[in-house]
């Protein structure tokens, strides 16, 4: 695969076809928030947090219990469009241990349809250390494919080829008025995925939790807004 020199100097962010070079793998940061690796027919989605809405109920916060439905609809749209053979759910797919049991029957059905249609992998997350009981799919703690390794929580320090979730990255830009959006964050060597769930918030990439994970000079936040992706270099990023 020929690397395309897209920027000045030694920036080799992009590969042929506008795909992003991630440790030698040619991937796409899809505007829906999933990572797509066409060569492997692989789709990766992080932090679905299914049934986060209903988890609030115990405390008397009756937020609309439709987040699972919204999340699954968006995911099924992405799968239908990108037609992967394999899906990796990168952990925290369920908001808590009881989440699977709280799924509305219709939501359970649509999730089962999604899982059954492809080679589905459940990566364990801190919210869902145990795999779902009755949905099929292969549970793993992490999984390596080619130059990439997929796990829920990023290792501290540099981790070449790591694709992770957990931190819910978001980026903020703009001087006179600021705009904050979910984002993929990558330095070409490792990548963190934005949280996909309908009720998941975002943590600013400038937060201390991201410290030491990336080579800042090569860091790009791929901000998601309104069906588009905006690559933003680290010099433009603002803290909250």
């Amino acid at each position: 695969m020929t690397a395309l020199r897209a920027g000045q100097g030694d920036d080799d962010v992009l590969t042929v076809g506008g795909l992003v070079n991630l440790n030698g793998a040619a991937v796409r940061f899809d505007a829906s928030g999933v990572l797509h690796w066409p060569e492997e027919r692989l789709l990766v989605v992080a932090d679905l947090h299914l049934e986060k809405g209903s988890s609030q109920g115990k405390r008397g916060r009756f937020v609309p219990p439709y987040d699972t439905r919204a999340t699954l609809r968006a995911l099924s749209e992405a799968i239908g469009r990108l037609r992967p053979a394999r899906v990796i759910a990168l952990g925290d797919s369920f908001h808590d241990g009881g989440a699977e049991g709280r799924l509305a029957p219709a939501d359970l059905d649509s999730l089962a349809v999604l899982v059954g249609a492809v080679d589905w992998t459940w990566v364990a997350g801190n919210h869902d250390p145990l795999p779902p009981a009755g949905l099929g799919g292969t549970p793993v703690t992490e999984i390596a494919i080619g130059p990439l390794v997929f796990r829920h929580e990023p290792r501290s320090g540099r981790a070449v080829g790591e694709v992770a979730g957990h931190l819910h990255p978001a980026a903020k830009v703009g001087r006179a008025r600021s705009v904050r959006r979910r984002a993929f964050v990558s330095d070409g060597s490792r990548c963190l995925l934005p949280a996909f769930g309908a009720y998941t918030g975002g943590l600013n990439i400038m937060d201390a939790a991201f410290k030491g994970l990336f080579e800042r000079s090569r860091l790009i936040a791929w901000m998601l807004s309104d069906g588009r992706v905006y690559p933003v270099r680290s010099a433009e990023l603002l803290p909250d």
Binding site: A6, L14, G18, V173, G174, S178, M223, S225, R228, V232
Partner: peptide, 27 residues
């Protein structure tokens, strides 16, 4: 002054911050 058509303003901010060269290459 800086008033713009509704809804467009956010995208403008993002467009201004985004790296043109990468965007062009991706288009």
């Amino acid at each position: 002054g800086g008033e713009r058509v509704a809804g467009e303003a956010d995208e403008d901010v993002l467009r201004a911050a985004a790296d043109d060269i990468i965007r062009e290459a991706m288009a």
